[in-house]
Amino acid sequence: MKLRDIAHSRTGDKGDISNISVVAYDPKTYEALRTWITADRVKQHFSGIVHGAVVRYEIPSLSALNFVMQEALGGGVTRSLALDAHGKCLASALLDMEIPDGVVAR
């Protein structure tokens, strides 16, 4: 299944930093998200795009994870030659991440 099947996201960017929050549709799936969607997996998912550190913050009261990705926007939105590489596009790409069967109990 795709991450988008069990969560939605909010995004932001500042300079060369992209910020993506992943929010579980159902609080019952938050623990599975917390276990599976690690900073390392997000960094691997964006290999070739994110060149800096990825830090994950947990927000259990919202059933959410927040990822701050350094060196993620080709120098920043106003400096990058990419047409649309800022946060909103990266959030969509993150929601395309595959979640293996059995990670989320249904």
Score class of each variant (00 low, 15 high):
residue 1 M to D: 13
residue 3 L to N: 03
residue 3 L to Q: 07
residue 3 L to P: 00
residue 7 A to P: 00
residue 7 A to D: 03
residue 9 S to R: 09
residue 10 R to P: 08
residue 16 D to M: 08
residue 17 I to T: 05
residue 17 I to G: 01
residue 20 I to Q: 01
residue 21 S to T: 09
residue 21 S to K: 06
residue 21 S to N: 02
residue 23 V to E: 09
residue 25 Y to N: 08
residue 26 D to T: 11
residue 27 P to N: 03
residue 30 Y to N: 13
residue 31 E to V: 01
residue 32 A to S: 09
residue 32 A to F: 06
residue 36 W to Y: 14
residue 36 W to C: 05
residue 36 W to A: 15
residue 37 I to E: 00
residue 39 A to S: 05
residue 40 D to W: 00
residue 40 D to N: 09
residue 43 K to M: 01
residue 48 G to V: 13
residue 48 G to E: 07
residue 48 G to I: 12
residue 49 I to Y: 04
residue 52 G to C: 13
residue 55 V to W: 10
residue 56 R to V: 14
residue 59 I to P: 05
residue 60 P to G: 01
residue 62 L to K: 03
residue 62 L to A: 13
residue 63 S to Q: 09
residue 66 N to G: 05
residue 67 F to W: 02
residue 73 L to T: 09
residue 74 G to A: 06
residue 75 G to L: 08
residue 77 V to C: 13
residue 78 T to V: 10
residue 79 R to L: 14
residue 81 L to F: 07
residue 82 A to N: 15
residue 82 A to C: 06
residue 84 D to G: 15
residue 85 A to T: 06
residue 86 H to A: 07
residue 87 G to P: 04
residue 87 G to T: 02
residue 87 G to E: 01
residue 88 K to E: 06
residue 89 C to Y: 12
residue 90 L to D: 06
residue 92 S to R: 03
residue 93 A to I: 11
residue 94 L to H: 10
residue 94 L to T: 14
residue 96 D to N: 03
residue 97 M to D: 09
residue 97 M to E: 11
residue 101 D to F: 10
residue 102 G to F: 15
residue 103 V to W: 09
residue 104 V to Y: 08
residue 105 A to K: 15
residue 105 A to M: 14
residue 106 R to G: 09
